[in-house]
Amino acid sequence: MRVAFFVVLLAGAIFYSYVAYADLNFLTRTGRPGPGFFPRLIGTAAIIFTLWTLVEELRKAERERTDPRKWKDVVILMALACSYAVLLKLFGGFVATVIFLGATLMLLNRAQPIKNVLVATLVPSGVYLLFDRVLNANMPPALFELPI
């Protein structure tokens, strides 16, 4: 996983540098630093440092050993968080939050279903009151309005 992360970073650094060299000028017509001045320096440095650390990583004798059990819950939470991002767009702030909290708590805290239901309804209500009523801040609008 660690090597894969470095490879992704390297790919990002190469793409960033490609755009900097292909589309952005290093100097302006008057000889001053242009829009590509900083990006080219950053991109080149990023490629050098990422390659350096990647090579060091590959040379390491011992490979990382990760316990798959450590990953299980964090991957579930990440997946639920990403689903929540999609739900926000579809059903708006309040409904998406109720669904997200309900599903997450049912998975992570199975022993206390009543508490989970209470948290899944009271927290979104509190957040809605704080953001929408007290602070007059933006709450995500729903693409599909649910009949509630």
Binding site: A85, F100, L108, N109, V123, V127, L135, M139
Partner: peptide
């Protein structure tokens, strides 16, 4: 923490959107 964490996700998401 397992009950606190999902609530933090909610505040992060709605706070960013706002």
């Amino acid at each position: 923490y397992r009950m606190l964490a999902p609530c933090i996700v909610v505040v992060c998401a709605l706070g960013t959107f706002s």
